[in-house]
Structure formats: C-alpha cells, structure tokens
Design a protein around this nucleic acid. Structure first.
Length: 583
DNA sequence: GACTTCGGCGCC
DNA sequence: AAATGGCGCCGAAGTC
C-alpha cells in the first residue's frame, strides 16, 4: 500500500490513499483526522477497512496523528523529499517505517540514464512526465545554523493549478514504470527502497542528535589552547607557538600562510615544495616542531573550537544535517558542522547519557571485501574469511611473512582500488594481480571503461556521471597528447574507485535500512559515517542491539550479493560509554 | 564587502 | 615511468 504525502506552498500536507480508501475530492473537513478509519490489523486488508476520511489539507500535527494510525498497515509512504518533508513529522513524534523518496529515486533513475545534472525535484520530474517546460530552480539551501524549517515558505515549483499530491502520484507511477523497464534484477528497486529508508534515518539522526558533552569539549579546548579568546584572536597556546616560530626563523612569519612558510625556509637555505606537515616533518630546522604543533592546534581551533561548539551543539546534542545522495558515489555528505570529520581528539566528547550506552560498529575493511564480492574472486573471498583482511592478504602474497608485509599489502590493495601505481607498492601490486586476477581485472575494467568516457555502475545500479564536455574535447582526438592521456587516466581512476565506493554505499544503505527497522525502541541510530554506525541505547538493550546488528549485516549481505555470497563482512561492535573507547 | 581560488588537513 | 579515490571546511589572498 502506498500513501502519498505532499506539501503545498503554505506548508500544509495533503494525502493520497489507495483508491479504496480515498476520500472524496476536497475531503471532509468537518471531521478532521481523528475520524480517519482505524486501519485494523490486516497486513494489506484494504478491502476490509472502512474508507479513510481525510481532510483536503492537514497540519503536521494532524498528519502525525493520522500517520501513526496508518503505520499499523505498514504502508510505503511516498514523500516528494524526505530531507525537506520528514523533519516536520519527526518533530511531531512520527516515525515512518518504509518510504519512497521521489527526489532520491528520481536522482538514481536520472543517473542511470546518464542525466546526472537534471533536477531531481518533484516539480522537475512532473514537468518531464507531462512534457512541460522545466520549472525555474529555486533550490533552497539552508544556512549553516538554520534549524530544519517546519514550514518552508518557498513554492514547490509546480504549476499553480497542480495539486502536489496529484503530481506526486503521477511521478510515482512514472518512476515505477521506469524501474520496471530498467530493473531486470530487482536491484535498482532495492536501492530505491534502501536509499529512501536511509533518508528517513538521516532525518531521525539529525532530530535525535549525537550525544555531545559540551563541558568535556570546553575543558579540552582550554587545556590545549588556553582560555577562550574573542573570535579572530589567537589563544595563548597558539600565540606562544607563533612567537617560537618567529624566533626560530629570526623574523616574523605568518604560520597561517603556507606561502610565507615556504619563503621562510627558502631564506634559511631549505627549499621545500610546500608547507604540508609531511614535508616539514622531514626537515631539520628549529621552526619545524613549533610549526607542526601550531598547525595541529590551529586546525582544532578553527574547525572544532568554541565557535563550532556554539554553533552546532545545543543541549548536549550535535545535530548535523545529513545529505543523503550528496555525493555522486552515493556516500552521504553533510551541510555544515563537518559531521563526517569528527577528529579523533574530540571523540571523548561523544558520551552516552546516564544509564545508556553507545554501540559503535565499523564495517572492517569494507571496500576490499566489496571488491571481492563484486568480482567473484574466489581466492580474495577466502582471504576475506579472516577478520584482519590485510594480514591475511599479506600472508597470501608473502607466505610465512604476513605480519611483516601487512602495511605493504594494505597499500597495494588500496592502490588497486584508487588507481595508485607509484612507489614501493608497485611490486606488490603486480603480485596482487597475479594472485587475485579476477579482483584486479574488475577494477582495471572499470578504469578502462572510464578512460573511454563510458559509465560504470555499482552493484545495485548507482551510475557514474559522464565526463564533462571539456574532457570530451580534450580526449576526442587520437589521445596522443599528454594532457589528453592524463585526463583520460584521471577519469579512469575516478570510475575505478566509483565501482567499489558506490557499491560500498549500496551495502551501507541497505544496512541502515535493515538496522533501523530492527532496532528495539528506544534504541536509535545517532551517527553514520561511510562504514561506521553509532547506536544510542539503554544499557539493558545493548546486547539486543548487538544481535540486531549481526542480523542486519547478514541480511544486508544476502540482499545485496545474494544468498550464496562467499564473502564475509565482519562488523565488529563495541559497547562503550564514550566514542573514544571504541577501537 | 561578497565572492572565488588555493593550500592545507580533518575524516572515510 | 607512473600525481591513489571521495568529501567539507578553514584562513589567506586575489578578484570584482
């Protein structure tokens, strides 16, 4: 059963229920949602239920009440955009179980057809179905500190005479038809469902927030930087380091300005290509130590200092806005807060509430395992049976000397997936190719496809974007010039990585969907970053969460790679009070 | 003053 | 022989 939810320009919601349940056009406003039929207990027993009587438009609160009743029928909720429309419902206490995000699915389908740049919005999708001119894009980009708006006053972009719910119904039908045409394996439909469920999880995580102890954060800043100073001035520790740097060079040098650091070393008779930390670390000069320390602390101050704390943490919760589908590969992005880059030094600030625990779980070496599953490389799958894939891999490459060669094996594997060829990894890479021909040829094929300007797809059907016109112009000739060859290779590296990274994003999207569904209330997801999840749970439920996690991982692997998948995906989890205590 | 670009570095 | 992938965000400097 699909239930379509749309919002009009005034921020009111309207609903479309399946035909048997649909209220007369215009609804029965006198009754309000309280009179909506209680759907009963039949899983799909629409025919046994009294017709739903739904007003033409509803407030978020009214919709919330209705949604909670309808949930017992386990409908699939169809939303024009979960990111935009769901926060208002979550704020009213609603949790939807299943959904179809029209914008995200539109994005997946457009990308599948190589149309990555066309708008995914409901209005644009509707215009394409109806053959109308595309709407003017009025993409709303929230200001960094903007709370999710309950009522976004901007228009949907739909023609004034089109009911948003009607448009959503039309676009849903169109998407289902396209999925039916394109999706012979069912994988794209699975991706659509998983991506939509991930979007629900993202909004819920923003609403719940990541437990964040401001007092710990402040204490740490004071300890490392000195007392808080007004924005724009240097804390005591940074000022002292800057002075030591000046003294070491014998003249004033701005440590925040890389070029002046390079110049200062030049005057001291040391030529450096840049002021990067790994370059400086190799130098023998008294300014190096204070410079490295300055860089590290200045970074903390600028990126996660008092200003960040003021802006992003309220009531001991960090609430970033996650952008599902924000990266072409399917990884998430965030809007503000640098949520996917929480530095290790601050992880002690992430602490469970009293009586609660954090369950921290990380998919170990996810990408090489994904590659093993994608390529069907039996020997690599065998290597994946070990929880420490890289040691196992090193043992396979260098029998009897696994531990010694682990670092090299890791670099070689990453080079294979990222397209690196340089340095000492080259020899190991060649060895990798001999021992794991199926896996290596899989990524080589993805690279060659990209070098020709053709798209590659993930396991579930995420599709790499076409290269730019400039790229085609550059590579259009006989490919003899250096620039053309370089552009071609660059794009090959991108598609090589895309095949693996996007398939990893498939796997994690399904994991989020399955885990979210299984978690016992009131345990809930509070953080997700590429291959790692944090669940906040009452202490007595921590073991149950671990069980859910293990079941979700097994289900995810089965769904994405089939029941006979020989590759194991360990996801070791720890139950901790503080994120810093998770290994 | 608002904007963009660059170097740099945090995370995966 | 060979420039390893994806992001977000900062300050400084350059541009308009």
């Amino acid at each position: 059963m699909h239930v379509i939810v749309a919002r009009d320009s005034a921020g009111r919601f309207s609903l479309r229920l399946p035909d048997g349940d649909r209220a007369a056009d215009g609804g029965i406003t006198a009754d309000g949602p309280g009179s909506a039929a209680d759907p009963g207990t039949g899983a799909d027993g629409a025919s046994t239920d009294a017709p739903a009587i739904v007003p033409a438009t509803l407030s978020a609160e009214d919709l919330a009440a209705l949604a909670t009743r309808l949930e017992s029928r386990q409908p699939r909720w169809v939303l024009p955009s979960v990111e935009r429309d769901y926060p208002a419902l979550v704020a009213c206490g609603v949790r939807l179980r299943r959904c179809h995000d029209l914008s995200l699915v539109e994005g997946l389908l457009l990308a599948f057809d190589g149309e990555h740049t066309r708008s995914r919005s409901l209005a644009a999708a509707y215009a394409r179905v109806r053959g109308l001119a595309p709407p003017a894009e009025t993409e709303h980009v929230a200001a960094p500190d903007e709370q999710p708006a309950l009522f976004d006053p901007q228009s949907s972009g739909l023609p004034a005479d089109v009911d948003p719910a009607e448009a959503a119904e039309v676009v849903l039908a169109d998407q289902q038809a396209r999925l039916g045409r394109l999706d012979t394996s069912g994988r794209l439909r699975m991706l659509a469902a998983a991506e939509s469920a991930s979007a629900l999880a993202a909004v819920e995580m923003s609403a719940d927030g990541l437990p964040w102890r401001s007092d710990h954060h402040e204490a740490l800043l004071t300890e490392l930087l000195g007392p808080r100073v007004p924005a724009g001035s240097r804390p005591a520790a940074l000022a002292a380091l800057a002075q030591r740097i000046d003294e070491a060079f014998g003249r004033p040098v701005n440590p925040d300005h890389p070029e002046s650091i390079v110049r200062a070393f030049g005057r001291a008779g040391i030529a450096v290509p840049s002021a990067r930390a790994h370059v400086l670390r190799r130098l023998d000069h008294p300014a190096v130590a204070p410079l490295l320390e300055y860089k590290e602390l200045a970074r903390l101050h600028a990126a996660h200092g008092w200003a960040w704390l003021d802006q992003w943490v309220r009531g001991d919760r960090f609430r970033p806005v996650y952008v599902v589908g924000g990266v072409v590969s399917g990884r998430w992005a965030t809007r503000g807060g640098a949520a996917l880059q929480i530095p290790r030094v601050l992880r002690g600030c992430v602490r469970a509430d009293a009586g609660w625990k954090l369950v921290v779980a990380d998919a170990a070496q996810l990408e090489p395992r994904i590659l093993a599953a994608l390529s069907g490389d039996r020997r690599l799958a065998e290597v994946c049976r070990s929880p420490d894939l890289y040691t196992s891999l090193a043992g396979e490459l260098h029998p009897g000397a696994a531990t010694e060669h682990r670092p090299n094996a890791k670099i070689a594997m990453l080079s294979a997936m990222y397209g690196g060829t340089a340095g000492e990894a080259a020899a190991t890479l060649a060895l990798l190719q001999r021992r794991f021909p199926a896996a290596v040829s899989y990524v080589e094929h993805a690279a060659a496809t990209g070098e020709r300007g053709e798209p590659v797809r993930s396991r579930l059907g995420r599709t790499s974007p076409p290269p730019s016109e400039a790229w085609r112009d550059l590579t259009g000739g006989d490919g003899a010039e250096d620039a053309a060859r370089r552009a071609s290779r660059d794009w090959g590296r991108f598609t090589r990585n895309f095949a693996v990274q996007a398939s990893a994003a498939d796997w994690t999207a399904v994991l989020l969907a399955t885990l979210r569904r299984r978690l016992p209330e009131p345990a809930h997801l509070v953080f997700f970053v590429h291959d790692e999840v944090l669940v906040h749970a009452p202490a007595e439920l921590a073991d149950a969460v671990l069980t859910c996690l293990a079941e979700s991982v097994a289900e995810t692997t089965r769904l994405v790679f089939g029941p006979a998948c020989p590759v194991e995906f360990p996801m070791p989890a720890t139950v901790v009070d503080s994120y810093a205590d998770a290994t």
